[in-house]
Simulated assay, not measured.
Amino acid sequence: MFKGSVVALVTPMADNGQVDYETLKNLVEFHINAGTDGVVAVGTTGEASTLPFDEHIKVVAKIVEYSDRRVPVIAGTGANSTSEAIELSQASAGVGVDGVLSVVPYYNKPQQRGLVAHFNAVADATDLPVLLYNVPGRTVTDLLPDTVVELAKHPQIIGLKEATGDLKRLQVLKSKLSDDFILLSGDDPTACEFMLQGGHGVISVTANIVPAIMAKLCQLATSGKAEEARALDATIAALHHALFIEPNPVMPKWALYKMGLMPSPALRLPLVLPEQIHQNAIEQVMKNIGVLS
């Protein structure tokens, strides 16, 4: 179920900071029409850290409603408090998501055995499939391969979003885990190679901008069509990097705004709009690949 191109969807907002649900609906349709294989609702790219609990769940519920079971919806439900992660996961289950994505607790720097206890507690609290999310660039703590192996023993923990960009890590994980444990890249620049080396897909920021290309890339790479996959990936390599010139989702929102897919590039503080030099840089990249005239 959770394979291929899964978009880490932005949460569109009006200039006053309120969620723009009409645009959110349009973005869901944009992705379904482009062949996106799944949606992550209110993850990092969806500004989970600045949406309070009730609003967080409302956005998730709306994405479930708008997708209407045409693609799986995975709710971002991570937190640095285990009780909050459980509450978010249970509330997301209540609005009909297909799974949850739970990030390594940030800031409090838990031990590896603390991570085992945390994720097992989350998985015990819901009947939904749980995807672990390792992104030490944001959380500081690294979810180590042996810890993933221990967590994979839980029947509800079915996969991992691995965002280190370390392809050697993938081979270590593959050597220690069963073939049915889902391994998804969380790093667009290395996602093609990740899939060619046995990964099952990507939870993608780039897919916000070029969903059809990312869907095709995933089809090629997971089918082992290396030459075609690498050639297609090369056409959007500059976009992968431009989207992270400033902290995510600053650049994806600016790009969607320039494409006319969002009426505003608004973010919630403490994030602000990109510097002019970075606006110019991504717009040039978008022109080069043909998504902006």
Score class of each variant (00 low, 15 high):
F2G: 08
S5C: 12
M13S: 06
M13Q: 11
N16I: 05
G17S: 01
V19M: 05
D20V: 06
Y21M: 00
E22F: 01
E22T: 10
V28N: 08
E29F: 15
I32W: 10
I32Y: 10
D37V: 00
A41K: 03
A41W: 04
T44Y: 11
E47Y: 04
A48T: 04
E55K: 12
E55P: 12
A61V: 05
E65L: 04
S67P: 05
R70D: 13
P72L: 07
A79H: 13
N80Y: 15
T82Y: 06
A85H: 06
A85T: 14
L88S: 01
S89D: 05
S89K: 04
Q90H: 01
G96N: 02
V100I: 15
V104I: 12
K109V: 04
P110S: 11
H118P: 07
N120M: 02
A125Q: 04
A125C: 10
T126C: 12
L132P: 04
P136G: 14
P136K: 10
R138M: 07
L143Y: 09
P145M: 06
V148D: 02
V148N: 04
E150C: 02
K153S: 15
H154P: 12
G159D: 03
L160N: 06
L160I: 03
K161E: 07
G165T: 02
G165I: 04
D166Q: 12
K168W: 15
Q171L: 13
K174F: 08
K174D: 04
D179P: 08
D179G: 09
D180C: 12
F181I: 14
F181P: 08
I182F: 11
L183G: 11
S185A: 13
T190S: 01
A191I: 01
A191F: 01
C192E: 00
E193I: 00
F194A: 05
G201I: 06
I203M: 07
S204M: 06
V205P: 14
T206Y: 08
N208G: 03
N208V: 07
A212G: 13
A212K: 12
M214G: 08
A215W: 03
G224N: 07
E227Y: 01
E228P: 03
A234D: 00
I236Q: 05
A242P: 08
A242N: 02
L243D: 13
P249C: 13
W254I: 01
G260V: 05
M262S: 15
L269I: 11
P270R: 03
I277N: 11
Q279W: 09
Q279A: 10
K287P: 10
